[in-house]
Amino acid sequence: MLSVSLDGFFEGPEHQLDWHRVDDELHVHFNDELRTMGGFIEGRVTYELMADVWPTAETDPASSAPTRGFARIWLDMPKYVFSRTLERADWNSTVVRDVVPEEILALKAQPGGDLVLGGADLASAFLRHGLVDEFRIYVHPVLIGRGRSPFPAEAMVPLRLAESRAFGNGVVLLRYEREA
């Protein structure tokens, strides 16, 4: 699952994410999708960004109902944090040092639902090893002009459109599956 601007960036040049158009409808959709998953696979940067917000969001009186709902999902969900420098991770998290395809395939084979991959560098490593089965791209109706692309320049992955959906705020979900 990945949010991108219309011009294809997942973050601005200074790592900005403030252009995301997440309203209650989209947040509820994210929660509905994510609560069925078996775990989050995150890079260190993504994990640290999430850990800065979600452990306290559930009890923050300023949080909306969808925000509180996601906080509970994130806290309860198993997390696999890929990092060579992080010593430990809290909130139902396991630190993993390297992307070993056989270990990822074994993790994917476990019961409990799909795994959600977060972090551009980590996603690039998973793509290189052919470990990404599906892409859920949320295109936000904004041009940010500059930023970071979520996909490695050398990636050539044939895909098939499996679903599209427009939300009231103009965000469009494009769900692609890998071609066989």
Rank of each mutant, 00 (worst) to 15 (best):
A109V: 08
A65K: 15
H27Q: 13
L115C: 04
W74S: 08
F151V: 10
A123M: 13
I73M: 01
M77F: 06
L34E: 12
G170A: 07
E58F: 13
L131N: 06
W19R: 07
T67V: 14
L17E: 09
W74Y: 11
P61S: 05
L131E: 03
E154S: 15
H29T: 03
A51Y: 08
R146L: 13
L115K: 03
I144V: 13
G69W: 02
Y47N: 01
Y176L: 12
D133I: 01
F9C: 02
R148W: 08
V171M: 06
L117W: 03
L107K: 03
S93E: 06
E177F: 07
L49A: 14
R44K: 13
G119C: 00
V96K: 05
L115N: 01
P150W: 02
E48W: 04
P111C: 10
F70V: 06
G39P: 03
Q16Y: 04
L173A: 01
L122N: 01
Q16K: 11
Y176W: 11
P55T: 09
E42V: 13
V28H: 12
L105T: 15
E102Q: 12
L131R: 05
V172M: 11
A106I: 04
I144N: 05
V172L: 11
I144H: 07
K79E: 05
P101F: 10
